[in-house]
Structures are given as C-alpha cells and as structure tokens.
C-alpha cells in the first residue's frame, strides 16, 4: 500500500480544524451549563454547608460574580491552558482530579477494546463465511445473548466465577500500571472482560454484516476468478474492505467506554471517569461536571479523528479522489 503523505497531511489538517471547531462548540455549551441551571449554583453546591461567608468565598473563587462575557473569556483562556477551575466539593483543581481518574479509564477502555476485537473479528468473519450453517447460528445466538445481557450482571457473573468460586482474580479495585504491572493486569482482567464481552457481542454482529456484504461484491468474484487461495481472498479482498464499517463501530465502542461505564465501574470499585461524573452530579459540583464533560468530549473527538485517519489509510478513495 502506497501512502501519499501530502494528501494524508492535508486530510489530517482539515480534520483537526473541524475537531477544533466542534471543541469550541462544546466549550460554549459547557460554559452555558452553569448559567442555565435553575436556581443559584453556588447555593445548590453548598447545600447544608451554607453560610454567608462560605457563599461569598465560593462566589469569588468561581468568578460567577463577574459579567458574563468576562466570565466566558476567562473560562476559555483557562480551559485552553488546562486550567478547568477548582472543584466546588473538594477544593482541588479539576484537572488534577480528572488526570487521577484517566489512567483507570484508559486501562479499561484499551483492554476492553482489545478483548472485543479479539472476540468479534474472528467470530464475525467465521459466522459470515459460514452463513446459514450451525456454527453461524451458534455465533449469532451467543452474540445476541451478549448484546441483551446487562453489563453489571455480566460483571457479577464473572466475579462469582473467577473470584468467589475459583479465587483466581481479585473481585475489585484498581492498581496503577506504574505501581505494579502484574497486579494491574490481574485487576483489569474482570472489568475489561465485562466491557469487552458486551462490546465484542455488538461488534460481532457488525463484522458479520460487513463481511457478508463485501463477500457478495463483484470484486470478490473477480478475486475468485483469478484462482487465488481462499485465505488470500478472505484476507486481502474481503476483510480489508469490511474493515471500514467495522472501524466506525469499534471507534464508537471505544469512545463510549472512555466516556464512562458507570455501572461496571461501580461493580468493580473502579476509579474511572464514569463514577467521577456520577458523584459530581450527585454533589452538584458544577466545575467538576464542566471539566468532565469537556474531557469526555475531547476524547470522543480524538477517537473520531483517529478513526478518520485510519479510514484514509485503509481506503484510497478517501485519501485521494
């Protein structure tokens, strides 16, 4: 495959610009969040801890007493330099709190996506190439089951099996990779498997559909008419063409795990972003909510950008034309 670097760079540049515009839109929405909340956000945030001094202190610290435009410019400036303000609840910088949660979330998402891919690609391809046979039916029923089962139930089943019954793996908690890689791996297996199995079941159906569609294309018949070995036809002609739609769904799955799988994080006591958002909403910690939403949106954009670049690498019609 010959990559045309110039075109790819132009493509990437345009995509980056597009992402920046979307991110700006998200910033405006996130800023507006605090303004449109019914009632007084400071009062709500303080709740039972309300005193006049505490109110004034938080009002000044949050900058909500200044004119709207000034607030926005200042918010924008700070956000772009990574300063997302201070948590109403703990008083710590929002960015520090987010970065503390990010490694756990990233671990879960990467492991989950790897497991999902390892399951869904072979299963989906096999199922499509054996359409209508028994193995196809088994894969379809299994994936339907995986799609239908709630993830927390899947998580509890896995805990019951691997932790409680066989005692092979710890049932919950997170250890940073940098602290102890072995322990990190032991602890990420079960939550990773939970999100991976669910995402894998969804992806299997997409892979199967994509492969079925490509296999009926005229160019696959051309490939067969060349007398190529079956494996070459499947790998070079079917799977590569089926990759484009599969990339889309893989990107969406990855991004949604990054955005937080709250129930799984709760079941496994996993300190991820999902739980952080949940706790912030419960505590009406507006600066924290703003920061999380911004981070999650940025990660979605980044994943989308990555998927777009992969499209361009795989498909010359997107890269050149």
């Amino acid at each position: 495959m010959s990559l045309a670097p110039r075109q790819l760079l132009v493509f990437l540049g345009r995509r980056l610009l597009y992402s920046a515009v979307v991110l700006l839109g998200v910033l405006v929405l996130v800023f507006a969040l605090v303004q449109v909340v019914p009632g007084d956000p400071i009062r709500l945030a303080l709740g039972t801890r309300y005193t006049e001094e505490a109110y004034q202190a938080l009002l000044t610290a949050s900058g909500l007493d200044r004119p709207l435009l000034e607030q926005f410019v200042s918010y924008l400036g700070h956000a772009l330099t990574g300063d997302l303000g201070v948590s109403f609840r703990s008083g710590e910088p929002v960015s520090v709190l987010l970065m503390r949660r990010l490694p756990a979330t990233l671990s879960l998402a990467v492991v989950g996506l790897v497991i999902a891919s390892v399951i869904s690609i072979p299963a989906g391809v096999w199922s499509a190439l054996h359409e209508g046979r028994a193995s196809d039916a088994i894969i379809r029923v299994t994936s339907q089951f995986g799609v239908s089962v709630p993830d927390f139930w899947m998580g509890m089943l896995l805990i019951l099996l691997f932790s409680t019954t066989f005692g092979l793996l710890p049932s919950s908690g997170y250890v940073a990779f940098s602290d102890d890689p072995g322990e990190w791996a032991r602890r990420v297996v079960l939550p990773g498997l939970t999100v991976g199995l669910v995402a894998g079941a969804i992806m299997t159906r997409y892979v199967r559909g994509a492969v079925l569609e490509v296999a009926s294309m005229s160019y696959v018949r051309t490939a067969r008419s060349k007398g190529l070995p079956n494996g070459v036809v499947v790998r070079r002609h079917i799977m590569r063409n089926a990759l484009v739609p599969v990339l889309t769904i893989a990107g969406i799955q990855f991004a949604s795990i990054l955005g937080g799988v709250i129930v799984v994080e709760v079941v496994f006591a996993w300190p991820g972003l999902g739980r952080l958002v949940y706790e912030s909403v419960a505590a009406r910690d507006y600066s924290m909510i703003q920061g999380s939403v911004l981070l999650i949106a940025a990660m979605f954009l980044l994943v989308n950008l990555l998927v777009d670049v992969l499209y361009a690498v795989v498909d010359p019609r997107i890269r050149l034309s």
Binding site: Y219, T222, S225, G227
Partner: peptide, 18 residues
C-alpha cells in the same frame, strides 16, 4: 485465472477499490 480468464459486466464494481 491461469487457463481460464474472466471479464465481468460492471467495471465499477468488479475491481477491488482498495
């Protein structure tokens, strides 16, 4: 592909786009 070669109808779909 060796002894028998094939040309099909629609050239827009019978070549692999990638």
């Amino acid at each position: 592909g060796d002894k028998v070669g094939f040309v099909f109808q629609d050239p827009t779909t019978s070549l692999n786009p990638l």
